[in-house]
Nucleic acid binder design. Structure first.
Lengths: 191, 191
DNA sequence: TGGTCGATAGACCGAACGGTCTATCTACAA
DNA sequence: TTGTAGATAGACCGTTCGGTCTATCGACCA
């Protein structure tokens, strides 16, 4: 039986950091993280080597989760690549409406991590390319003439949606983006 | 004759803060700002009341500058609203290519200023609405059936362009956005 | 039973943070 | 010439920062 073991300090730290680095930004103090996770100071340095290691691991973790969320969203939309791609924007619309939505975590991280050598940058860059490739694969299945370029455009719409969702709540950027996405995908193929 | 007086401490501080808050983020230390501006510590608190007052004033200043840059870009593009709107994306393309481009200052500020009561938020919000209204006015002149909604979409493309420009250099988001913008504007009117 | 290892609490470190203060200097006006 | 206002340098304040360290605790295993 897969009994759920009580999460250890490492898991508690990751969970607390995931939450706090998003809500409070990358500037959260170590003390705040430790208190939120109920973890001894030493454990942080044992497991992650320092704050940078922790936030990098958080980025890695959430990137995997979000990547899976893209895949799950498309899987739930069925087989038609057109429907699958448009479903992404419906999903974004839901995310934006969540009360504690604060914009794209990865964009915020890249803007906040001043040091270009911070290992977090590599994680966010890889994440973006993975999403790009997911989109491109669908576009290819759709028979789009320029799948890579169209994926660039869809990614631009996604980033725009998340940015506007954070800065102009009340407008409905996901719906506006979805309409533009339809034009990228071209006329629906009438079988 | 309009002899250019040597800039006083206030101007030097604003200029240094404009530069450093963009390059290093809102987390720059007061000491770094003072050193860069060659200004006494006391002067900062005399003129701006504190760091928050300074960065808010910087946002106000750059918002006015950027607003003027939008207007100038459109003015230089002539009278046709379609050309004027598309010129914005050409201009964004130039901005993104600048070697020290680091993304949208206002989005970065909004993500970095955790405290929702920080006066900077009001400045960035106002700025966005001003740009929106500039776009909407052109769309109205163009005879667009839904100028406010189309302005939402253009603003989304702008934010997406700046985000992608910061996170995926090498791709050419401004050109990709421009093409989508053309579709928002509709078929060019053949006089 | 004793040993080991992971975790705990928390003192402690030097550095940097934002902000206040005194004292001095300089330019300009009365 | 003297007074005044604005700017200067920089000491100083308490707090917080990320990070290190010691000491203790408790669970599991030999």
């Amino acid at each position: 039986m897969t009994t759920r073991t009580a999460p250890g300090p490492r898991e508690r730290l990751l969970e607390a950091a995931k939450e706090l680095t998003y809500r409070q930004g990358m500037g959260v103090g170590v003390d705040a993280l430790l208190k939120a996770a109920n973890v001894a100071r030493r454990s942080l340095y044992e497991h992650f080597g320092g704050k940078d290691g922790l936030v990098t691991e958080v980025l890695r973790l959430t990137a995997a989760e979000d990547e899976a969320a893209y895949e799950q969203t498309m899987r739930a939309a069925g087989d038609d690549p057109r429907r699958r791609l448009l479903a992404v924007f419906d999903w974004l619309g839901e995310i934006i409406e969540e009360p504690d939505f604060r914009g794209c975590r990865y964009l915020a991280a890249e803007l906040a991590l001043t040091d270009p050598e911070h290992p977090g940058h590599a994680v966010t860059r890889r994440y973006r390319e993975r999403v790009h490739d997911l989109l491109e694969a669908e576009l290819r299945r759709l028979g789009h003439p320029r799948p890579a370029y169209a994926a660039d455009q869809l990614l631009l719409l996604i980033d725009g949606t998340l940015a506007v969702g954070a800065t102009r709540p009340g407008t409905h950027p996901a719906a506006a983006a979805r309409q533009l996405a339809e034009q990228i995908l071209g006329e629906p193929r009438r079988s």
